[in-house]
Every structure is written in C-alpha cells, then in structure tokens.
C-alpha cells in the first residue's frame, strides 16, 4: 500500500468522523429539552466535526502533492473563539432566566455577571437621567 492510497483512506475516515460529529451535535441541539443542556451539544460540531473536516482537507492537499497547512488558521480560530461565544450565550440565558438560576454564593455577594458596576447602575426614573 503506497502512501497516497493510505492518505486517501485517511481522508475518507476523517470525513466520516467529521460528518458523524456534525450530525450528532445538531441532533442534540434539536432534541435536548433544557437550554443549558442544548448549549453543550453544538460544541462538538465546532471542535471535533470541523476539526476532522479541516484535517481531511489538509491531508488531501498533501495527497494531491500541493501540500498546504493554512487550514490550521481556521482550526485555531474556531478553537479559540468557541468557548468565548458559549460563555456569552450562557450569560444571555442566565440573564433572561431561561435556565435554573445558579445557587447563591457564600456571604452577601452576587455572581459577577449579575453584579453591575457602580458607574453602570440603571437610573430608574426618567427625571434622574442626565440631560
């Protein structure tokens, strides 16, 4: 078995893995019945699914003989930004009371996402609003 045939088999295996993870993640997004559990399923699409597809693309470019590694850019960008957007979506769900609220922390403090800084406190009545 030459290296080229082995590379083609590897590309096919990576395509199967990526497609399976993308499908499973979206099934989870559709079928799970709580907003915080729904948040966990599509993370597999971003890391494993797209990661395997990009690995397949890179290996295939080497099989064709014009090797290129710049799919690593997309992979790195997705892996870095996925937790940030998941954190933002979780904060949206906590603030909109779409999930079970977290237990209160010790002492008389609040969680930092619910703790508005002094300068940003909402002015309740319209008369207090600065002109």
């Amino acid at each position: 078995m030459t290296l080229e045939i082995f590379g083609t088999y590897f590309v096919a295996a990576c395509l199967f893995v990526g497609a399976a993870f993308a499908l499973v993640g979206s099934i989870g997004l559709l079928k799970l019945n709580d907003s915080m559990t729904r948040l966990h399923a599509p993370t597999k699409v971003g890391t494993m699914g797209i990661g395997a597809l990009l690995l397949a693309s890179m290996v295939q470019s080497f099989v064709r003989g014009e090797g290129s590694l710049h799919e690593m850019l997309i992979m790195g960008f997705l892996f870095v930004t996925a937790p940030i957007s998941a954190n933002f979506i979780a904060k949206v769900q906590m603030h909109r009371r779409a999930c079970v609220p977290p237990p209160a922390p010790l002492g008389d403090e609040t969680w930092s996402t619910f703790d508005t800084p002094e300068a940003d406190r909402v002015i309740d009545s319209p008369e207090d609003r600065p002109a």
Binding site: S35, L39, V92
Partner: peptide
C-alpha cells in the same frame, strides 16, 4: 433568544 443565538452559531 439564547437558543436562537446558539442555533445561528451552529
């Protein structure tokens, strides 16, 4: 809204 943002991201 959180589910809609998550669906758009996916």
């Amino acid at each position: 809204t959180g589910d809609r943002i998550l669906a758009l991201d996916t």
